[in-house]
Design a protein around this nucleic acid. Structure first.
Lengths: 153, 153
DNA sequence: TATTGTTAGTTACAAAAACAACTACTACGA
DNA sequence: TCGTAGTAGTTGTTTTTGTAACTAACAATA
């Protein structure tokens, strides 16, 4: 092997991508979501936005697409398409508001509730499994820092 | 406003999506990447995978697409397309290895180096700005936990 | 030197996301 | 009550991804 090849073991400067917070956050988010993603995808054929919409309806009950979008910081286009797909699969019902006909109230069907409860259980276990690698104080700090970084507060 | 609407301020059960680690990680990753994303996108027309490839070449010097993929945990298809686009824009050169003609050595052009140095500076400032919200101990712990969650180690 | 397996990288096609334009409806002011 | 502006939600079009199949080159071996 010639010697003018790069030595990929030593960075050429002091910048370390692996310590760059946006990069680290993305890697951690992707990796730590994989198995959960696998569950909602294979068990219910759901996409990322779909389980998020399902969870919002499951946690807070009936609300409009707009409300979901604002709370979950999801663009209305994505909410609209997620709602369509969830409605097709009979996970939720849409009811036109007669007082303000622009609004559509969304509500989980029994099937939707069942899926929500199932996935909620999976999520609880999943979260606990991730947290188990750290002390409870560390996890509390992590959540608080992430909330701050996300601007959720 | 009618009173039989959902009260979205109180969850109906004890599960809190906003504390679910994969969700929190995703939100934090998305939000905290937005402004940086804006820079590499608008200043150099780059996509996520492209700046990552650029950074790997910038940090470690000449290497093959395969090596980048393994190091950065990026699928070869994505690397291939990112390399194509970076080559079109003259940010890198591709040299066929004459000893093993399957291999292609990638190397930043002066323009690529300049873009890397510029973005590296942006990344440094950006990281410092994010870190400033916390103590240095907190940030160190955060990075270490994220690395663990990402399986980077 | 065929044969089979493996590796590096590309390409084709389907799925999904992003962005913008659009419809239907409500609110408000002249 | 007409015009204008704003809101809720949908649809169409273009980019980007994801998946899998593909080509070209090397390696090992019979």
């Amino acid at each position: 092997m010639t010697e003018n090849l790069a030595k990929p073991d030593a960075a050429r400067d002091d910048f370390d991508l692996a310590n760059f917070l946006p990069f680290l956050l993305n890697q951690a988010a992707e990796e730590s979501s994989l198995a959960f993603q696998h569950v909602y995808k294979n068990r219910y054929g759901m996409l990322r936005t779909e389980w998020r919409v399902l969870f919002h309806l499951g946690m807070y009950g009936r609300m409009t697409a707009k409300q979901i979008g604002v709370r979950a910081m999801i663009h209305k286009t994505k909410v609209s398409r997620a709602v369509q797909r969830l409605a097709e699969r009979r996970f939720l019902t849409r009811t036109r508001d007669e007082a303000d006909r622009r609004l559509e109230h969304l509500e989980l069907t029994p099937a939707g509730e069942a899926a929500y409860r199932d996935l909620r259980g999976v999520a609880r276990d999943y979260d606990a499994r991730l947290a188990r690698h750290f002390t409870s104080g560390e996890v509390a700090l992590l959540r608080s820092m992430l909330r701050q970084l996300a601007g959720i507060r």
